[in-house]
Design a protein around this nucleic acid. Sequence first.
DNA 1: CTACATGCAAAGAATTTGCAAATCA
DNA 2: TGATTTGCAAATTCTTTGCATGTAG
Lengths: 129, 129
Amino acid sequence: MQSVRVTKQRQAIESVLDSLPGFISAQALHQHLTANGESIGLATVYRTLQSMSEVNLVDVLRDQSGEMLFRACKSKHHHHHLVCRSCGAAIELQASEVETWAAQLAARYGYQQLEHEVEIFGTCPKCIN
Amino acid sequence: MQSVRVTKQRQAIESVLDSLPGFISAQALHQHLTANGESIGLATVYRTLQSMSEVNLVDVLRDQSGEMLFRACKSKHHHHHLVCRSCGAAIELQASEVETWAAQLAARYGYQQLEHEVEIFGTCPKCIN
DNA sequence: CTACATGCAAAGAATTTGCAAATCA
DNA sequence: TGATTTGCAAATTCTTTGCATGTAG
């Protein structure tokens, strides 16, 4: 039988994710944890984030360098993000227009099993100053 | 003075890219070349693709594993793609609706220096069979 | 000629994995 | 106790770089 154990490490990870407004990389999350006195291995951070993403507890996306970014998932529905390149703050976007647009293209070109990725990166008001 | 030299390797790369309908990874492109008897180093493939992308001779995107994919760029304008997950075939999409949508969000949330990434992945008609 | 390109190997960086030791339930 | 989880280090991948050598112009 498979179950998820509530370990100190996992709690620490969830705690940090919940306190953050936006996306963070596994590496940065690990640094954040160790900097605050937590004893945790980088591999554990990766493994925990992966398991959390598998059950949709976190959103995952990749920045332009290909690095994975994670964020506590607020809504269970399909959505996209407006992400600050500087601080990682993210706004969830529900965009039925985009969904419709993608679906129409699917039909027009005969593509199936569609999946789309829409992320908008920019600099948020706070980071502009 | 800086100029781009027309070397055998570069020609080989351009030739392959031009013959392909879709995206290909640097690694796969290198394999393709060596398999066809070309003598070329992987580093050269990477360097050439990078220089080509800097002047927009190729489109670049990342697949879900974070690997970079390249494709001969047909149109000089900003656009997105409908990419086949299986064969890499890509259809260029001009989507003013999406551009508008992104711009409106920029304004609404005060984000600046926006950049968006919109890629649709699916299985093309040929690969469905 | 000579500035740029290439090849190779080494370096980097992010992520994953093997395995023994630690630990939640 | 017994199945998971952790830590560490080693292994994987993709990509970049250093440097001596090759070559297009």
